[in-house]
């Protein structure tokens, strides 16, 4: 296929010479070169039927070379040898068990610390409802105004907490923080679902209880003591 300009010019001039015409006739040269340009360019997109007959143009994957085959053989041999020695010798199995236990011992303390706020089901007791991590709100700041005259960390009544919630506008005092578990039975009408979840846990968040208090669930009889133990300040 002729695509070069000089080849195209030679083609057209050869045609004129072949026909006993002037090869330097500019009028014909220009017209014939324009005519030749009709057959240049890229091939049109093949139709579906033609495309199925065309060879794929993607590059082929290189077959596995000698080096790759050697590596595969070495890995297979090492795996086989390890397996056979473990099957033959109890000492190898004991050593492997000790190694695994050591790894578990190192890794295990990290798991609760990392997943304390994300795995409430670890301490969920039967009959209680675990709080999903997505429903746990951010830990609010303790109320700065106490309407009962107690310290901010002390357990307060439901009304007091509600009034402080109104005061701060945080809306986090509905039925929670009283440590009595009453909020579970009758939450405040304005309680939002996350707050209800907290009330369900029976913990007092108003005095900065740890996040784990929101993830742990206890039976309904325990919330008061639990709240006191977690959030009640030492009086005096």
């Amino acid at each position: 296929m002729i695509t070069d300009a000089s080849d195209r010019d030679a083609l057209v001039r050869g045609l004129l010479i072949e026909s006993d015409l002037d090869p330097d006739d500019e009028v014909l040269l220009d017209a014939l070169q324009d005519l030749h340009a009709l057959g240049e360019g890229r091939a049109p997109l093949p139709s579906a039927a033609v495309a199925t007959a065309l060879a794929p143009t993607r590059a082929r994957r290189r077959p596995l070379g000698r080096r790759g085959a050697t590596v595969v053989v070495l890995i297979a041999a090492a795996s086989l040898g390890t397996g056979l020695s473990a099957a033959a010798s109890p000492a190898v199995r004991a050593g492997a068990q000790h190694a695994i236990e050591a790894i578990v011992h190192v890794v295990a303390p990290l798991v609760p610390a990392v997943g304390r706020g994300t795995a409430p089901s670890d301490v969920t007791e039967p009959g209680t409802r675990a709080v999903p991590p997505s429903t746990v709100p951010a830990l609010p700041n303790p109320p700065t105004v106490s309407t009962t005259g107690t310290t901010p960390g002390a357990p307060v009544s439901s009304d007091a907490t509600r009034s402080s919630a109104v005061t701060t506008g945080a809306g986090h005092g509905n039925g929670i923080g009283n440590g009595s578990g009453a909020a579970h039975a009758a939450p405040h009408p304005t309680a939002t679902p996350p707050m209800r979840s907290r009330a369900h846990s029976g913990s007092s968040h108003a005095h900065g209880a740890a996040l784990e208090a929101t993830t742990r669930t206890v039976p309904s009889a325990a919330p008061a003591a639990h709240a006191r133990g977690k959030g009640a300040p030492v009086s005096g």
Binding site: M1, G39, G41, A43, P44, P46, A53, L54, A55
Partner: peptide, 20 residues
């Protein structure tokens, strides 16, 4: 191969067939 020959023919000659 016939398939490769057809592919080469299409790439080479399809523009000329269209122009013709």
């Amino acid at each position: 191969r016939p398939r490769d020959r057809f592919t080469a023919a299409y790439r080479e000659l399809a523009p000329k067939v269209t122009g013709y």
